[in-house]
């Protein structure tokens, strides 16, 4: 049995070096570690190759059997729902889980699961590299992913740029399902900035609005991180409020095109993520109407138009009386 001890695991744990062969205790699958992909709140993810094949996979080793199994349960449930609904939404028909097993480590068994490997970079790195004009499309794809998850009865919970992978052509995938919880339950895992509770904007009960709020903060961060930082540290926890985020949205010219969407997400006004998805689409595909046209119409043109109407009216009156 694992020693639980009296510490809470937060610090980084030593990882296995490249070349280590991970053999499953129950199903005897063999995987060769190539490198560490990342470290989540409840495990380390490695890039591996199945022995005897070229295909790369991602293998997650958990710190705690119960935690990891809870995550595996979510993935299994998603997988079975995806199979039965057979809807094309959410991209290709993919399977999350390829193998679930234990590995005999030096200090006892370590649980792991193997999933598809998704090459790409984190959302914030992607946007920094490729430019802000990608926010509309990647945001849309991310909302589609969230919507798919919501329709399966789950919310993602710990939504932040680090947990969103984007491929070089802009395909989006959520990674780290450790924070996923059933709708109606308490949110399992969160990060302060993106947490509705942190901003005194609502509860920590899982509903679709919780993810949408986190999405809104994420967009604000991508477009105006400095002001978000200031807003977060400026106020005492008890005076922090969604109003600060709303005024930030109103002030910032960079956020203007998305302001209506962000306002509704922060206030929790979307009835579900489908509605939010629809408005996002309208927002990004009608840029001429939303952002540019009204702002670009010169003031003098409007004035001149008003003046000419007045002259026409006067002319009519004059003609009428004569």
């Amino acid at each position: 049995m694992k020693e639980k001890g009296c510490s809470v695991t937060t610090s980084s744990k030593p990882a296995y070096p490249a070349g280590t062969v991970i053999t499953g205790k129950w199903r005897k699958g063999r995987f060769v570690i190539r490198r560490v992909l990342g470290q989540g709140a409840n495990g380390i993810v490695y890039l591996v190759q199945k022995e005897g094949s070229r295909n790369p996979y991602a293998l997650k080793m958990g710190y705690d059997t119960l935690d990891l199994q809870s995550e595996i349960n979510v993935l299994m449930s998603l997988q079975s729902k995806r199979k039965s609904s057979a809807s094309p939404r959410g991209g290709t028909r993919m399977s999350y889980l390829l193998d679930v097993d234990d590995f005999k480590g030096q200090q006892g068994d370590i649980p792991f699961y193997v999933m598809r490997y998704f090459p790409g970079s984190s959302l914030h790195h992607f946007i920094r590299k490729r430019g802000r004009e990608w926010i509309g499309l990647t945001g849309l794809r991310l909302l589609e992913k969230l919507n798919g998850l919501h329709r399966s009865g789950f919310i993602f919970g710990d939504l932040k740029p680090e947990n969103v992978m984007v491929s070089d052509v802009g395909h989006v995938e959520l990674i780290d399902y450790g924070g996923v919880s059933s709708i109606g339950r308490s949110v399992k895992q969160f990060t302060e900035w993106y947490d509705r509770g942190y901003w005194n904007a609502g509860s920590r009960t899982s509903d679709e609005g919780y993810d949408l709020f986190a999405f809104a903060v994420l967009i604000i961060q991508l477009l105006n991180e400095d002001d978000l930082k200031t807003a977060a540290v400026q106020h005492l926890p008890q005076t922090r409020s969604p109003g600060q985020l709303l005024s930030l949205v109103q002030r910032s010219p960079k956020l203007k095109p998305y302001s209506e969407w962000l306002r509704r997400a922060i206030r929790g006004e979307f009835s579900n993520s489908h509605e939010a998805l629809k408005l996002w689409k309208e927002t990004i595909y009608t840029p001429a109407l939303v952002g540019k046209l009204p702002g670009k119409t010169p003031r003098w043109l409007i004035n001149a138009f008003a003046l000419s109407i007045m002259i026409v009216c006067l002319a009519c009156l004059w003609a009428f009386f004569l």
């Binding site: 049995m1 199994q69 595996i72 299994m76």
Partner: peptide
């Protein structure tokens, strides 16, 4: 069995559902 950890992964799933 002495612990959840010693169950095969397929059975573990149901026990963890109860724990959750």
């Amino acid at each position: 069995h002495t612990a959840l950890e010693e169950l095969p992964p397929s059975q573990r799933s149901q026990v963890v559902q109860v724990v959750d």
